[in-house]
Write a protein that binds this DNA or RNA. Structure first.
Lengths: 303, 303
DNA sequence: TCGGTCCATGCCGACACGGCATGACCGCCC
DNA sequence: GGGCGGTCATGCCGTGTCGGCATGGACCGA
């Protein structure tokens, strides 16, 4: 029944043309080998080796097996190795969802690190809404999510990736921008603050409001749409300000400046995954992500 | 250790997505199947199936095995079938040596029959000298020989294929050809008889001489070279005669006639093979040859 | 002719495999 | 909501296969 082992045995004998040497090579005793080859012949109903006491030669059928057998063993080997590659996360496929804003700088760096550290893992990254990410991961249709202020949901595992220092974006002409390198949250009191609707990501909304509240500030919230750049206009005109992470400072339109909040306020960016059914590839991504975070100093928000 | 069986088991479960049904399909009990799949996972160090009590789904590694596994099983199957094909003589390769004269009609008909009856068997047929055929078969460098008057050698197995009626070739002007449909061997007394050197095939030489001797005739032997047609000239000129089988009557040069010996004299044409190490393909050829001989009436020399 | 080499056989212990009975868990239906 | 059916896992046991050791038997070369 154990065809492959017997094939291996036969090949050893056919190559060595000698049972005794082949047995040594296989680390079994010669009688055992002798019997296994006989058994293979019996199963196939074929004489594979023509043996005399001093000469062992493959028959025609034996020669065929000798030619084609190694390919079969190799194919089997390759299959086992392939499976093992999936097992230890060298091979695989992962779907990753990231928010338009949360992932804008973080996701590309993570993907880059993955392509270097685990080139066998295909990461299918898509921009998705916060709700779709959270629901997708929970439902199993998405493997990993990259979000700000992940919800403390039962079955979700959070991996802290980045502490993102928050700051305000204001028009260069705005009073807050006059001669200051930073902004005290307390100074936001009464200002018009442009934020995403709370429904979009309640945790994020609440945390930003909390930063203000702790400083005793009560800004007036204006809801903006999901599209980021197009909604800058109230900010550009000086009528409002907005709070974004430090990754939002690059590529600002002329006339706008990003000023860090002082004292330092941060927002957490997490990778979220399911607790169950995590493939080795996902584990691998988490390890790579944590390492990338460490190397980039993403947990030390003050530059 | 029995990797292929376990692979088969796993594939059944992965396809059915259900251990119980897969077990039925495999004709084993469900617990046995359950354990074998577990064991496969343990050996590979991989979780292949994610099971809950009511759902069985392949993991990523399992899906890979599910995709590539069947090909491996097919490859193994094809290999076993190929070997078996050699075993029962549906596939194979045979080297056959035949004498220039002995095989001139017989060998092509035998090859034709083989290509119809056993198309998977490649017959490598070559014209060889009598000595090379006999020695080659005995030494194992040749599988089958087709010869006249095979030597009664120890390890050679003779398969009588044909009783070839003998006759004389004479010039149309020769006295023997005047008004006779046949020739009595007694009439050969004193004539010049053109034959191959005795060394070439002693059995054949002796048998022809014996035919004459039994009739009380003592012809004068002229030795001719191996090349047949070119040596016809002494016969064509009427200076000599020669004795050949009936297969030599076709394609005679104009001016020559073949007259059968009367009473009937025959020479045996045999297939010669080794007694040992006969591959199934060789056995097959022998069977086909015997059948062809029967169909062609090769053992009834008088038409 | 004798010793060395090599393959085959007999016998035995270990273990892998499969069967049966049963347990644990979950979804479904009354 | 509780019982029931379906599903997979586990425990236990008999059997067959595999490998090891000792030995037999055949052949080759000195």
């Amino acid at each position: 029944m154990s065809e492959l082992r017997r094939l291996r045995y036969f090949l050893a004998v056919a190559e060595e043309r000698n049972f005794t040497r082949a047995a040594e090579r296989l680390h079994i005793a010669q009688p055992a080998l002798s019997r296994q080859v006989r058994e293979l012949e019996r199963e196939l109903g074929v004489e594979l080796l023509s043996r005399t006491t001093h000469k062992v030669e493959p028959t025609e059928a034996g020669r065929m097996l000798l030619e084609r057998g190694p390919a079969l063993l190799d194919a089997a080997d390759s299959l086992w190795r392939g499976v093992r590659a999936f097992a230890d996360g060298r091979l695989g496929s992962i779907s990753l969802g990231y928010g338009m804003s949360a992932g804008y700088e973080t996701a590309p760096q993570l993907l880059l690190a993955m392509s270097e550290e685990a080139p066998g893992i295909e990461v299918l990254a898509r921009v998705m809404s916060f709700a779709d990410i959270v629901n997708g991961v929970a439902a199993g249709t998405l493997d990993v999510g990259l979000v700000r202020c992940a919800p403390p949901q039962q079955e979700l595992v959070l991996t802290l990736l980045r502490l993102e220092r928050q700051g305000v974006i204001v028009s260069r002409d705005h009073p807050l921008a006059q001669g200051a390198d930073a902004v005290d949250p307390a100074d936001l009191d009464g200002l018009k603050l442009l934020l995403h609707a709370r429904d979009h990501n309640p945790g994020h909304y609440d945390q930003l409001m909390d930063i203000c509240a702790r400083a005793g500030a009560k800004p007036e919230v204006l809801v903006r749409g999901l599209d980021f750049d197009a909604s800058y206009t109230p900010v550009a005109s000086g009528a409002a300000i907005t709070i974004v992470g430090e990754t939002g400072r690059v590529g600002l339109p002329a006339g706008l400046v990003w000023l860090p909040l002082e004292p330092v306020s941060t927002v957490e960016i997490h990778l979220i995954t399911r607790g169950q059914n995590r493939s080795p590839a996902i584990e691998r991504l988490l390890r790579v992500a944590v390492e990338t975070s460490r190397q980039q100093g993403w947990l030390q928000p003050t530059p």
